[in-house]
């Protein structure tokens, strides 16, 4: 480096050159190397654990979806479709489950808005599934952190069995069996929580009959 430059300038020029070196190493080489290995060794996971129906991608098993009836004239938010298992309430986007707007409600633990939401959800879910409001599980009443949670508790899945079976004209025992086959236990037996993935469950539902 030219020595006629004052030290403070030389110091900043070095800083810039070092930053560019690290940009190449950690910002270009590193992610490309990880992508290369990931795509070669674990292409399914690296590409988003996509699920297909008749050869067409219909979603990711990791990202929750809406299972609603088409929007009717004059309606602002669509009604849930009784044919499908329903996911948790979602705060992502206007109608929920919008991956370009992931996020939570961020309502506080004593928020009157949240209390109102919980009361409304309890009444709506109980009516929709034809159960006693006091038995509706907590995951059906609360929005997830990501707004994209594809999972529900086994309790909420079982609660929906009769309604789904009736709407599809299926034997409830068959649908119940499908749910119990889709319960995922805790990884290694003790990490996190057990759950039912609604996306894969609904996909399996289309293959029944």
């Amino acid at each position: 480096m030219p020595s006629f430059l004052p030290p403070v300038v030389r110091n900043h020029v070095s800083a810039l050159r070092m930053l560019l070196v690290f940009t190449v190493i950690t910002g270009v080489v590193y992610p490309l190397a990880v992508t290369g290995v990931a795509q070669a060794a674990f292409p399914d996971q690296a590409n988003g654990s996509l699920v297909k129906q008749n050869g067409k991608v219909v979603g990711s098993s990791l990202i929750g979806q809406n299972f609603n009836l088409p929007l009717k004239e004059g309606q602002t938010s669509p009604n849930p479709d009784p044919k499908w298992f329903q996911s948790r309430p979602s705060a992502a986007g206007t109608n929920g489950y919008d991956p370009t707007a992931s996020g939570a409600s961020n309502l506080g633990p004593n928020s009157t808005v949240l209390i109102q939401d919980i009361n409304q959800r309890r009444a709506a879910v109980a009516k929709f599934d034809g159960v006693d409001p006091s038995t509706v599980p907590v995951d059906a009443l609360t929005a997830s952190g990501s707004g994209l949670d594809p999972d529900i508790s086994s309790a909420y899945a079982y609660e929906q069995v009769n309604r789904v079976a009736k709407a599809r004209g299926l034997d409830p025992a068959v649908v119940r069996k499908l749910v119990s086959d889709h319960i995922t236990g805790r990884p290694l037996g003790f990490l996190g929580n057990e759950y039912v993935d609604v996306v894969t469950l609904n996909l399996a539902l289309t293959n029944l009959k």
Binding site: R88, A104, S105, N106, L107, P109, L114, P137, V138, D139, L141, T142, A143, S144, G145, S146, D149, D151, I152, S153, G192, N193, Y195
Partner: peptide, 10 residues
């Protein structure tokens, strides 16, 4: 019935 608002089921 629980503090699941803002938390993920899994």
């Amino acid at each position: 019935g629980g503090m699941m608002e803002g938390k993920e089921q899994r």
